[in-house]
């Protein structure tokens, strides 16, 4: 008996699509791969992009399959942005693109030519913490710390989003100015999982910053 889940069909599909890509690609940068083009996995070409990361412009030639998350963590060695799932399920990889928070694991780096990226490293340093980072320390808004950069990136964006009048699932009155309530914060932070369960303390940290900025 073979494997209960048959991979044959998928493999054939894969090979076919790889060939299509190989034919369609204008620049065959991988000389060594030519002879085995039929076996080259789909999308295995490079692109050159320019983007700004934490204020520094970068030109990079990257594998088209590289996520924004791996571009930060691997190519630029900015490992503050975390990989918790690589599937948009946990929020550990949250950073901002042109000022808006994204799950960087769900976004291919090649889509960000010309974009401005901010990661946790651009927010503050151990000796010079941003108010949100300091509030996380003061309120013990973390334990293991692995979800923390994502929580902080999200938290900063959440306050921006509320100020900008962007409603959430729990916003009652779409015409009134949105208030920074516990539920608004909880709802908007719910894409950032903390398995250590620091939620109450994270809420306290965000609330403190919101009050200071009010």
């Amino acid at each position: 008996m073979g494997a209960p889940i048959e991979f044959e069909i998928r493999r054939r599909t894969l090979v076919a699509s790889s060939a299509a890509v190989a034919i369609g690609a204008a620049t065959g940068q991988r000389s060594g791969a030519q002879s085995r083009a039929a076996l080259t996995p789909s999308g295995a070409e490079d692109s050159t992009i320019t983007l700004t990361v934490n204020g520094v412009e970068q030109e990079l030639t990257i594998d088209n399959r590289t996520t924004l998350l791996d571009l930060l963590r691997e190519n630029l060695k900015l490992t503050g942005t975390k990989k918790g799932c690589d599937h948009g399920q946990c929020g550990a990889c949250t950073c901002t693109v042109n000022g808006q928070r994204v799950n960087s694991c769900l976004s291919l780096a090649v889509m960000h030519d010309g974009d401005e990226i901010q990661s946790i490293e651009g927010v503050g340093t151990p000796d010079d913490l941003d108010p949100m980072q300091a509030a996380f320390v003061a309120n013990d808004g973390f334990q293991c710390g692995y979800c923390t950069p994502g929580q902080i990136m999200s938290a900063r964006s959440v306050l921006d989003e509320i100020r900008a009048g962007i409603p959430s699932h729990v916003t009652d009155d779409l015409n009134a100015q949105i208030e920074v309530t516990d539920d608004e914060i909880r709802e908007r932070m719910s894409g950032n999982i903390c398995r250590c369960g620091a939620y109450s303390n994270i809420l306290a940290a965000i609330t403190k910053v919101a009050e200071e900025q009010a």
Binding site: T79, G80, V123, L129, I152
Partner: peptide
């Protein structure tokens, strides 16, 4: 007592296993 490793963690500077380039 606030965590002594807090500033490293909130600034993304605490190195976890896969990150030790």
């Amino acid at each position: 007592t606030p965590r002594v490793d807090g500033p490293l963690k909130v600034s993304g500077r605490a190195p976890y296993a896969y990150e030790r380039h």
